[in-house]
């Protein structure tokens, strides 16, 4: 999937201080039958976000207009459950580019990186600071700097570094996904193919 390059993201954030947000909550199974990839954002957190009749649940964070931004801040063990890539599609399609948590489920992390979402893992203490800062001022901004691998609370200057493997970092900064990377190797692959016995 083509996505926008990621270098430095300065944005307000949406807080979701819930642990173990699983992929079934992010996008329920019944929305996987589609033959298209678009539109999953409409069903992001579907059953937390809407009543069965389709009316919005007032108390859910995405329905509260004072919170907005391209960064989603979640509780520990974000993205557990099935391997469905649709969960990451839904988050991206809704407009998030970065998810911050103190721990990510493995497959969700891989899927996110594949489609242009940066998962930023911070310490539990820093995660609490972020939640408190947003609670105190919903307009407070975070800066996620991928080249430097830092995340900063701009109001106070408090900062942490985060880890990412150099291959994936390069992909995100250039807006490449694995497919772009592989397509750029077309000649090498073609030569390899020609030498296959079958």
């Amino acid at each position: 999937m083509a996505y926008d390059k990621f270098t430095i993201l300065k944005s307000t954030a949406v807080p979701m201080p819930i642990e173990n947000v699983d992929t079934d909550q992010i996008i329920p199974a019944r929305f996987l039958k589609a033959t298209k990839r678009e539109g999953f954002g409409d069903n992001l957190f579907r059953d937390w976000r809407y009543h069965p009749d389709g009316s919005p649940k007032e108390d859910f964070i995405l329905n509260n207009p004072i919170y907005s931004g391209k960064i989603l801040v979640g509780g520990k063990n974000f993205g557990s459950g099935s391997s469905r890539e649709h969960a990451a599609w839904a988050i991206y399609d809704y407009g998030f580019r970065c998810v911050v948590s103190s721990f990510f489920a493995d497959i969700f992390k891989g899927n996110s990186l594949n489609i242009g979402i940066l998962p930023v893992q911070v310490s539990p203490a820093f995660l609490d600071k972020i939640f408190l800062a947003i609670e105190a001022d919903p307009q407070t901004e975070l800066e996620v700097n991928l080249p430097e691998q830092t995340i900063t609370l701009l109001a106070t200057g408090e900062q942490e570094t985060f880890a990412i493997n150099s291959y994936k970092k390069n992909n995100l900064m250039n807006g490449y996904d694995d497919i772009d990377y592989l397509r750029a190797m077309k000649e090498e692959i073609a030569a390899f193919e020609a030498a296959r016995p079958y």
Partner: peptide, 25 residues
């Protein structure tokens, strides 16, 4: 085909089967 340092192997596939459910997207 190539090994990526600090990353996965680039792995050539001889045969690929597809069916109606997981291929449209």
């Amino acid at each position: 085909v190539r090994k990526i340092e600090d990353g996965p192997d680039i792995f050539f596939i001889d045969r690929h089967f597809i069916h109606e459910v997981t291929s449209p997207v």
